[in-house]
Structures are given as structure tokens and as C-alpha cells.
């Protein structure tokens, strides 16, 4: 799963898709995840990074990440296959 190349991010959590003109709002954690994905991190790497810096257990985060990535795909911010 990749974040589409041309997606623009601002530090305030504003996400813009120039190909469709759609804009989105995400929370700080969402923004961090999108940035990590943009940098090519796999789901496992993201899980390690987030659970080591936030008060959240592996299982709960995995569930949230799965849901979030699904939303990214639904909103056409992310595309393609899940990275192994």
C-alpha cells in the first residue's frame, strides 16, 4: 500500500489530493502514519514505531492501523497492495 505520489501534506493535518481537488483533515497520529507510509515504511515498521512512542498496545494499534489504511484507500489517498 502506497500513498499516492502527488498527495500534499501540511503539518496541521491538512491533506490535499491535487488530482481530484479533494481535501481532507487528519489528526496528528494520522498525519504521522501517512508520513511514515510516504517514506516507504511497512505496516510492521509503522506499528513498531508508533507503539514504542505512544501509550498503545500492539493489538489495538494494529486494528486501528488496518482501519485507517482502509479509509486512506477508500478516500483514494493510498493505492496498491499492502507492503509485506
Amino acid at each position: 500500500m502506497n500513498i499516492k505520489k502527488n498527495i500534499a501534506l501540511s503539518d496541521s493535518g491538512f491533506v490535499f489530493d491535487p488530482s481530484s481537488g479533494d481535501s481532507f483533515s487528519t489528526n496528528p497520529i494520522g498525519l504521522e502514519i501517512i508520513k511514515l507510509m510516504k517514506n516507504g515504511k511497512s505496516a510492521d515498521e509503522i506499528k513498531k514505531l508508533i507503539t514504542s512512542s505512544y501509550m498503545i498496545d500492539d493489538n489495538s494499534f494494529e486494528k486501528d492501523l488496518y482501519d485507517f489504511v482502509n479509509m486512506l484507500q477508500k478516500l483514494k489517498i493510498a493505492e496498491g497492495e499492502e507492503k509485506k
Binding site: F24, I33, Y54, M55, F68, M71
Partner: peptide, 17 residues
């Protein structure tokens, strides 16, 4: 290091206008 407060990641489409 103290861990940060977690919030579930969310994203929503903004409907201008």
C-alpha cells in the same frame, strides 16, 4: 522516556461550502 497520549488515527473529507 514517557510515552505520548494515543488517539486513534482518523481522516475525513472536508466539504467546503
Amino acid at each position: 522516556m514517557k510515552k505520548l497520549q494515543y488517539e486513534r488515527p482518523v481522516i475525513t473529507r472536508l466539504n467546503t461550502g
